[in-house]
Computed example of a mutant assay.
Amino acid sequence: MKTDIILSGVGGQGILSIATIIGEAALHLGLNLKQAEVHGMSQRGGDVQSNLRLSDAPIASDLIALGTADMIISLEPMEALRYLPYLSKDGWIITSAAPFKNIPNYPDEEKLMQELKSQPHVVVLDVENLAKENHMPKSANVILLGAAAPFLKILDAEVLRESVGRIFASKGEEVVQMNYRAFDIGHEYVKQLKF
């Protein structure tokens, strides 16, 4: 069994934290893991992309081939669409609805949403507003991870949730509990959609 994930977003949104949590969960289960170089993270506001490959068998390459990704997890809707050529026909897009307009010619938001929603397997949620409404503005990325959890067939949602606790443990119990709550908000949101 294997899962290939493209993580995308904008520098400072927390894509690397999502990669860290998923990677830690995979290693905790004894799975093989390869992660490709992350681009753009040195520039806050620049695009960030990473290939994350998980498998119960050895993995030869850290790069995901066109048309083979099982999932795109994105904290920015335009960035989700940028990597669409990598998604398999049965792959899922889990993305934030909130645009991060870091370029002058950012696409029309309505057209962007139409394109996303025309995809066969997509979950679009406003993680930024969910985070603000629940008084956890720095946990929008963990809300998105919670929403992606049901679609990560190689990792059980509870294993991912436990990884959240281990990753944030050094920041104290209050931060751990807030991120557990964030994960649960995303997870419950998707369960209500009944896919």
Results as ranks from 00 to 15, higher is better:
Gly45His: 15
Lys101Pro: 07
Ile167Trp: 01
Gln49Lys: 12
Ala25Met: 10
Leu155Asp: 02
Lys194Trp: 07
Val176Arg: 03
Asn129Leu: 11
Ala36Lys: 05
Glu109Arg: 11
Asn129Trp: 02
Ala60Asn: 07
Gln192Tyr: 07
Val164Arg: 00
Leu144Ile: 10
Phe100His: 15
Ser139Asp: 11
Lys138Thr: 13
Glu115Ala: 12
Pro137Trp: 09
Met78Pro: 02
Gly67Lys: 09
Lys2Asp: 15
Leu84Val: 04
Tyr106Thr: 07
Leu130Met: 15
Met113Phe: 10
Ala60Trp: 03
Ala97Phe: 01
Ala157Trp: 00
Gln49Gly: 11
Leu112Glu: 05
Val10Thr: 08
Lys89Phe: 08
Val190His: 06
Leu54Glu: 03
Val175Ile: 13
Phe100Lys: 13
Asp126Ile: 03
Glu37Asp: 15
Ala19Lys: 04
Glu115Asn: 13
Arg44Ile: 15
Ala148Lys: 00
Ser50Ile: 08
Ala80Leu: 08
Ile6His: 01
Asn51Ala: 11
Ala98Gly: 10
Phe168Gln: 02
Asp108Pro: 09
Pro150Ile: 09
Pro85Cys: 13
His135Ile: 12
Asp90Lys: 14
Asn102Glu: 10
Asn32His: 15
Ala65Tyr: 04
Ser42Pro: 06
Ala182Val: 08
Pro77His: 07
Asp126Trp: 01
Leu7Tyr: 02
Val142Cys: 08
Ala147Leu: 04
Ile64Trp: 00
Gly9Ala: 08
Lys194Leu: 11
His28Gly: 09
Asp184Ile: 06
Asn129Met: 07
Pro99Met: 05
Phe151Asp: 02
Ser17Thr: 14
Gly165His: 04
Gln49Pro: 03
Ala98Trp: 06
Leu75Ile: 14
Ser163His: 05
Leu145Lys: 01
Glu24Asp: 11
Val175Ala: 11
Ala157His: 05
Leu152Cys: 13
Leu160Val: 14
Val38Asp: 03
Asp126Cys: 09
Gly91Phe: 01
Ser55Asp: 10
Ser118Asn: 15
Leu155Phe: 06
Gln35Tyr: 09
Gln119Glu: 08
Gln13Ala: 13
Thr20Val: 07
Gln43Met: 15
Asp47Ile: 06
Glu115Thr: 12
Pro137His: 15
Leu155Pro: 01
Lys117Arg: 11
His28Pro: 02
Leu54Asn: 03
Met136Tyr: 02
Asp4Glu: 15
Val142Ala: 04
Gly165Val: 07
Ala147Cys: 06
Glu158Phe: 09
Asp90Arg: 12
Gly172His: 12
Ser50Cys: 04
Asp4Gln: 14
Asn51His: 14
Ser17Cys: 08
Ile64Gln: 02
Arg181His: 14
Ile22Phe: 04
Lys132Gly: 05
Leu81Val: 08
Leu116Asp: 04
Thr68Leu: 09
Pro77Val: 10
Gly45Leu: 14
Leu81Asn: 09
Val10Asp: 00
Leu87Ser: 06
Ser170Val: 14
Tyr86Pro: 02
Leu66Arg: 12
Leu84Arg: 10
Ile18Phe: 01
His28Tyr: 10
Glu188Gly: 12
Met78Thr: 03
Ala98Ile: 14
Tyr180Cys: 06
Ser42His: 05
Val159Arg: 11
Ile15Lys: 01
Asp4Tyr: 14
